[in-house]
Simulated scan of single mutants.
Amino acid sequence: MVELDRLNQLMLDYLDPEVKLVLDVGKYTIEAGGKRIRPILMMEVCRMLSEGCERVAPLAVGIEYIHMASLLHDDVVDGALTRRGRPSANLIFGNQAVVLGGDYFYAKALWLYAVYGNLKAVELVSRAVMHMSQSQILELNSIGKILSEEEYLRIIDGKTGALFSASMGVGALMGGSPLYEEFYSIGLKVGRAFQLIDDALDYSGSEDQLGKPVGNDLKEGKCTYPLISVMSHLDIDWVMDRFGKGDTEELRRKVVSLGGVENTRERAKLEIKEVINYLKSFENSETLIEILESVVKRDR
């Protein structure tokens, strides 16, 4: 809790725009809360590898700014009405202000990396943002289509995994480790597990837990792992008559009854297990491993 409070305060402190509307959008987004899993992972990787990791705090703030910018832009693209249990920023401030506010978050993140990081840190986070942006376009182009597992993983590895890669890679880099590219690679698996759990919760969670409507993916025509994992048991024409079309509740219930949620959670556990096995060779990895285990146990 202390770590979260400190992160939230740093995010407000570093925001520091000159235009009040940018501040209003930023404060509204920050004060909505969040798990802050990406900056926490960055700081914990650094702490595992090195003492005196205060220098990584501004970079941890920067990675969360990038995440928040992507959420702001996603909500505009999706026409979202809620985020974390309250009206989405685009509903309050309008699409134009929110897109430009997201741009400010991106710019501020790069400024933090230029001032407090180094050229390699800038390269790692820029690589992640490029990967993330391209995968979000891939997802947009996949709406209404039934995907293969390979296509789905390609999307989530960029959409979610890339920023986890940067979080762990930059944490290792700032911790003085020459293994920062290995941490970048295993971060992809952490992000994959995180997104798998998100996708499972969209089928089995509740609006009170998630702070947003349940079943959105099916309603929007997004094909995720719960559906992919049981497609061999379903008639494709029956699915397509319901997928992304009006009342998708019957399809959601069928996927759940066939074990789609359990399949997805098990796949997430396999991804995290690989990461934990890698980290066990490092001293002082207990806290980091505990955080990673919580990724696949969460219910929101």
Rank of each mutant, 00 (worst) to 15 (best):
E3Y: 10
L4W: 14
L10E: 15
L10K: 15
Y14M: 09
G33P: 04
K35G: 03
R38M: 12
M42S: 10
C46L: 12
G52H: 09
A57S: 12
P58L: 00
H73S: 07
G85L: 03
L91W: 05
G94M: 03
Q96P: 04
G102P: 09
L112A: 06
L119D: 14
L138C: 02
L140H: 14
S142M: 10
I143C: 10
E149M: 05
I156N: 13
D157V: 04
G161F: 04
L163Y: 04
F164E: 12
G171H: 07
G171I: 11
G175Q: 01
S177K: 00
Y180P: 00
Y184R: 10
K189F: 01
L196W: 12
D202N: 11
K212Y: 13
V214D: 06
N216Y: 00
L218C: 12
C223T: 10
C223F: 04
C223N: 12
I228W: 00
L234H: 14
G244Y: 05
G246T: 08
K254N: 05
K254V: 02
G259L: 01
V275K: 07
N277Q: 11
L279C: 06
E283W: 02
N284K: 13
N284Y: 09
S285C: 15
L288S: 14
E293C: 06
E293D: 05
R300W: 13
